[in-house]
């Protein structure tokens, strides 16, 4: 595949992520923060986000599995996940967290479990998509091309 084609594909793909609401404008902020002094900034941040999220999701699952569910604790975890997901622009994860917190407030174990599944699903989705995105970028770079700057027009 030639570089130009790959670049177009990347642009299309990125656009689809925004169109589907998987990412939002905050992700563009991240990309704009990446510069010569920090060329891998986006990948680093997103990797951190993945690590954090997985840990949080495990913590939440464990907490929900207890006899006596500590909703306050769960809520704190979900809140943090909301904060980090919104900071990287993982919009659908963030939205799922918002719904999750409502159930926490109600101390609704069943609803919380459902929300956990939902959050996990959204998380996996954005993770796959972002990994694909990064792979595409790497391919372009490997082929000697440059990663096109994403326009914020969509």
């Amino acid at each position: 595949m030639e570089v130009g084609q790959m670049q177009r594909r990347l642009a299309e793909y990125t656009k689809s992520l925004f169109m589907e609401g998987i990412l939002d404008a905050q992700f563009l902020q991240l990309q704009q923060l990446q510069d010569e002094s920090n060329p891998d900034f986006v990948v680093e941040v997103v990797t951190l986000f993945f690590d954090d999220s997985e840990k949080l999701l495990n913590d939440i699952a464990r907490a929900l599995d207890q006899q006596c569910v500590d909703f306050k604790k769960i809520d704190a975890h979900v809140h943090q996940l909301k904060g980090s997901s919104s900071s990287v622009g993982a919009q659908r994860v963030k939205n799922a967290c918002v719904a999750f917190r409502n159930f926490c407030e109600e101390q609704n174990a069943e609803g919380s479990l459902r929300c956990l599944q939902q959050v996990k699903q959204e998380y996996n989705l954005v993770k796959n998509k972002l990994e694909t995105l990064f792979r595409l970028e790497q391919q372009i770079v490997a082929a000697g091309g440059s990663v096109p700057m994403i326009e914020s027009s969509f």
Partner: peptide
Amino acid sequence: DDDFTCLKILEQM
């Protein structure tokens, strides 16, 4: 911030 993701982003900003 206890959130490393946010911390990193903030640092860069």
